[in-house]
Design a protein around this nucleic acid. Structure first.
Length: 313
DNA sequence: TTCCGACAGTGGGGTCGCAAT
DNA sequence: ATTGCGACCCCACTATCGGAA
C-alpha cells in the first residue's frame, strides 16, 4: 500500500463544454485528506503530514473485509448544514482534540470522493468512473454523490451557499501530487462594490508602494443611519501598472485619521495610510466570514460610475 | 520566434503555539 | 499578561523564465 499519497489537484476554470465526458462533484470547503485503511487507519494531509491523531472521527471508519486508500475532504458543518472552513480552523492545529473538548463542539465528517487502492491493487490507472463505481460499492462508507455535468447543478450549489463544484473527466486516471486539467474546480464567485478607505504599504517588489487596499461599505444601522464598515483588504488582482495608478489617485486623498465608523483591529491599523472614502471599486470574493470580511478577495477595478454613499452591503 | 505552463512572490481570512517584550 | 510572529490551513493572482511548439 503506497504511503503517503499526495492528492491530485484541480485547475481553476469554467464548466467544460464537452459535458458528456465529465461528472460534477460538490466542492467541499474543508481540508484535503488521504485515508489508509488496512489493519490500522492512518490519515495524511496534502503534503503527507500525519493527521491521524487530529481527526479521531476518521479513525472510526470501517470498510469490512477490504484494504483501501480513500481520497476525500475533512469537513465541519455549521448549524445550517453547510460546510464551514471557519469552524474547521478551530480543529486543524489541535493534535489532541479530545483533551480540548472539541470532539463534541466541533465534530468533523469525512467525505470520501475517490478510491486509490483496493485489496492489493493501486487504482491510479483506472478511469475515474471505474474508481467511483468501486468506491460506491464499498459497504460502510457514506459517499457523497456526483452529478451530470449540467449548469443547473452549479446553480444549485450557488443557491445553497456552497463553494462550487469540481468537474472530473470520466475517463481520466489519478495522478498523485499533480495539478491536471482533468479536474476543473468551478467556484461560485460573488462581487461587491467597495469604497477604498486606506491602504497598507507593500513589501519586496511592492516596497515603496501599495501592498493592499483597505475596503469599506456602508451598512444600515437600526434607526435608519448607516456606518462606514470595514470589510477587509485586498492585495491581489491588480497589475503593477494598476497599483501605480491607484497610488497616484490615493495620495491626494490622504488624511491623518481613519474614516471608518469603528476602530480597526490594531494589527491592521498599524502602518496603514488613510484616505477620504471617495474612490469606489469592485472586488470578487468567495464568501463573507463571521467577522463580515471578504474571503479570498480579488481586485476587479475602479468603478468611477459609482457614488461612495451608494456602496452598501 | 512565439507561446504556454510551472514556479516564485505578493497579497488575503483565520487559528493556534511560542518566544519576545 | 500582552504582543508579535511564523506555521498551518484555505486561497487568488501577476510576473518571470525556460522549454515546448
Amino acid at each position: 500500500m503506497p504511503y503517503p499519497v499526495e492528492p491530485m489537484l484541480a485547475v481553476p476554470g469554467d464548466l467544460p463544454v464537452d459535458a458528456a465526458h465529465y461528472a460534477l462533484e460538490v466542492k467541499w470547503d474543508g481540508i484535503r485528506a488521504i485515508v489508509y485503511i488496512d489493519d490500522t487507519i492512518r490519515v495524511t494531509g496534502r503534503r503527507g503530514t500525519d493527521f491521524t491523531p487530529r481527526y479521531p472521527e476518521i479513525s472510526a471508519l470501517r470498510v469490512p473485509g477490504h484494504r483501501v486508500i480513500l481520497d476525500g475532504e475533512v469537513v465541519a458543518f455549521d448549524q445550517h448544514g453547510r460546510p464551514s472552513f471557519e469552524l474547521l480552523q478551530r480543529r486543524m492545529h489541535i493534535t489532541d482534540p479530545g483533551a480540548h473538548g472539541l470532539l463534541a463542539t466541533v465534530p468533523v465528517a469525512y467525505m470520501p470522493f475517490d478510491l486509490l487502492y483496493l485489496d492489493g491493487e493501486t487504482l491510479y490507472h483506472r478511469p475515474y468512473q471505474a474508481r467511483r463505481e468501486l468506491l460506491e460499492g464499498l459497504a460502510g462508507l457514506t459517499v457523497p454523490p456526483n452529478f451530470p455535468c449540467d449548469p443547473a447543478v452549479l446553480d444549485a450549489t450557488y443557491q445553497q451557499g456552497l463553494e462550487g463544484v469540481v468537474a472530473k473527466r470520466l475517463d481520466s486516471p489519478y495522478r498523485p501530487g499533480v495539478r491536471t486539467p482533468w479536474w476543473i474546480k468551478v467556484k461560485n464567485l460573488h462581487t461587491q462594490e467597495v469604497v477604498i478607505g486606506g491602504w497598507r504599504p507593500g513589501k519586496g517588489r511592492r516596497e515603496g508602494g501599495i501592498g493592499s487596499l483597505l475596503l469599506g461599505a456602508y451598512a444600515d444601522l437600526p434607526g435608519g443611519a448607516a456606518e462606514f464598515a470595514f470589510v477587509g483588504h485586498v492585495g491581489t488582482g491588480f497589475t503593477d501598472a494598476a497599483l501605480d495608478r491607484l497610488y497616484q489617485l490615493l495620495r491626494p486623498l490622504e488624511v491623518p485619521r481613519s474614516t471608518y465608523s469603528r476602530p480597526l483591529p490594531r494589527d491592521i491599523a498599524r502602518g496603514a495610510h488613510w484616505v477620504r472614502p471617495e474612490l469606489v471599486g469592485e472586488v470578487g470574493f468567495t464568501m463573507w466570514t463571521e467577522e463580515r470580511r471578504l474571503r479570498h478577495p480579488t481586485w476587479r477595478g475602479l468603478r468611477p460610475d459609482k457614488i461612495p454613499a451608494e456602496v452598501r452591503l
